[in-house]
């Protein structure tokens, strides 16, 4: 198996640190605007919809749907044993979308059905943890 820790690691910045502190706790936390109530991703100090700086972190449900994906036939560092592997976009139940990997099922067009239900899991990248997603109900 590939070593997830050998995969490219993010380096958090002060504005993104709460996100990566949460992933280490096994939680996917994003921000929500207190004024317009929109949830948003990626982390930042004001709401991209209304500009308010009255924003708070919250823990998402971890539920998502597969929005779209590609299958990379060349390996990024740490992905050598997984080719081809899915680089996917998922839509969180709370609305925002993010890039991720899909685990727990073969990464083939037959298994990766758009809009399939997913739930969050976490994998190491260097010293950090990042969210990945597996089909709902499929345990690791």
């Amino acid at each position: 198996m590939s070593s997830s820790a050998a995969k490219p690691a993010p380096r958090p910045t002060p504005d993104t640190a709460p996100y990566f502190e949460a992933t280490k706790r096994g939680e996917l936390c994003i921000q929500r605007c207190q004024r317009c109530e929109r949830a948003y991703f990626y982390p930042r100090s004001s709401c991209p919809a209304c500009g308010s700086t009255d924003v708070v972190w919250f823990t998402t449900s971890g539920r998502a749907r597969l929005h779209t994906y590609m299958l990379s036939y060349r390996a990024a560092p740490g992905f050598e044993d997984q080719v081809p592997y899915a680089i996917a976009i998922v839509e969180l139940a709370e609305g925002p979308r993010l890039m991720t990997n899909i685990v727990g099922i073969p990464n083939t067009p037959e298994h990766l059905v758009l809009d399939m239900e997913l739930e969050v899991d976490f994998e190491p990248r260097g010293e950090e943890m990042v969210p990945v997603f597996r089909p709902l109900g499929v345990t690791s």
């Binding site: 995969k7 490219p8 380096r11 910045t13 994906y69 590609m70």
Partner: peptide, 21 residues
């Protein structure tokens, strides 16, 4: 580097056509 590269992207061929499917 924080939100896309950790998922194994290898430049534009693995990213730009993300919406095609």
């Amino acid at each position: 580097g924080q939100f896309e590269v950790p998922y194994g992207v290898l430049g534009p061929p693995t990213m730009f056509p993300m919406g095609v499917l």
